[in-house]
Design a protein around this nucleic acid. Sequence first.
DNA 1: CAGAATCCAACCGGATACTG
DNA 2: CAGTATCCGGTTGGATTCTG
Lengths: 119, 119
Amino acid sequence: MRARVVEDDRGRREARDACLEPCPIERGMRIIGGKWTGSILWHLKDGPVRFNDLARMIGGASKKMITERLRQLEGHGLVRREVIDSAPISVTYEITDLGRTALGFLDELRTWSEGLPQG
Amino acid sequence: MRARVVEDDRGRREARDACLEPCPIERGMRIIGGKWTGSILWHLKDGPVRFNDLARMIGGASKKMITERLRQLEGHGLVRREVIDSAPISVTYEITDLGRTALGFLDELRTWSEGLPQG
DNA sequence: CAGAATCCAACCGGATACTG
DNA sequence: CAGTATCCGGTTGGATTCTG
């Protein structure tokens, strides 16, 4: 199993493979519609955020989930990971220019959702 | 189990319960981000469609899924179900005015997805 | 601090067969 | 035609523990 996956890409490869849907709406949803994915991207819009800060902002999601979703977003080039080798270590996540192109949609979704009958 | 659910609402009640996320983005995603949900809504934009026609349009989704998602959309008031009691029976699904309010960002998502590096 | 590793119950969703 | 019913393997995601 996992034949010929030489480099450990920490989920980046699978991130791509998961989005082979022919329908563009489905493809898009599989990229930014995952649990917590939209929220994560949204919370990065004002600048880089450290891992634990992000986890706190997304209250309700486990670190495991945050990590998985971040790897996936990285795999799609929507988020950049940066390691500052201080002590203690610091890792920040920053939205890329490509990632920013999704914020319009997310904002519309947010507005729509807030305007729904049941709040 | 299922205490006090007297009327059989065919999944409509659960549809609502599933969307109690405090974050509006997550809530929105749980409503239209389900597998096939966006596609279904999208294919209803030009008028009522019969069940089997819809199933054909969404090639790849099973009838079971189409049904489940339609019930969910109905529960959120985004789709209306209409039975024409002919022989053989005919059932059409039509997008509601509320449902139409989602077409804007679904179109944005479509455009966004199509413009991505990997197509 | 920023994860990785492991466990496991719950849910998801496809395949198939059946029905009014 | 428009579903429902059942089975069931695979995935999801929370909880917990461990690590450089």
